[in-house]
Amino acid sequence: MTITATPPTAVSVQPRPTRSRQVSAIPTLTMRRLTLSVRNSRSVAVPVLTPLLFALVIAPALANTIATPAGRDTYMTYVALATAGLLIPLNCMFSGLGVIVDRQQGAMRELLVAPIRRSSIVVGNLVAALAITALQLAVLIAASALRGASYVTSLHLLWFLAAALLFAILMYGMAEILATRLPSPEEYIGVLPVIAIVPFFFAGTLFPITSLPHWLAAVAKVLPLTHALALFRYGLTEHSGAQALHNIWGMSNVTVMASLSLLVVALFTIAVFTGAVRLFTKGGTS
């Protein structure tokens, strides 16, 4: 061991954390999470491979198998957008595993004694999850467009972006709540499919909710995924989106229906994410 004789450098630390300091902690925490999540080429390839597989193989295969009056490419577009309803929950829910790993083997306790608001830790992790989800969605849409899916590019895209953002925040909030409540990755993995996969089959993903039994269609109308998917479709395909929104609300004014669906997703998001932050903050102090 080397012991040097010079006194260590005195450092200047900002005496009181300001609001801007709190905000600046978020990029640091986001970069930490991204560095932990994306450590090698394999960890980049896996998140990209899933949307590629859906866009290039599964959506075309389903479109070829199922003959719809609207035609092959329309159904392929339908399935490709449905995939967004699977990718967002899966990626956000898997991000929650990182919180458990942080708590069990990582630097969580160091973060809890850092001079930052504990909510910054949740938001930092959320932004990292959003970044990876955005990459997956971009790959999905680009690859499916190359394969023949047709998307409308207009200001309607904002409906898609708003719904995707809110829905991803909602799903990450769910992930944080579960990660805070469940002690082990094994228990978390056990619950994950119930939240991330089961709703996929009832939310108008591969077929309209009008094809479901009445009682199940009623359940589907309460699922935030149903509203988010209708908005995804409204944002990128207009016609099938308008139909999906009509299947939920039964109205004629599409903008009103889209606004109502966005409101539903937003309310779910606010409730869940606020709960997630509160739970995490409370859990940081015993």
Binding site: V13, A25, T28
Partner: peptide
């Protein structure tokens, strides 16, 4: 470096 950033130490000094 994560600690330095979270504790707000100026980069050069850190």
């Amino acid at each position: 470096e994560l600690h330095l950033k979270l504790w707000g130490v100026r980069p050069a000094e850190g």
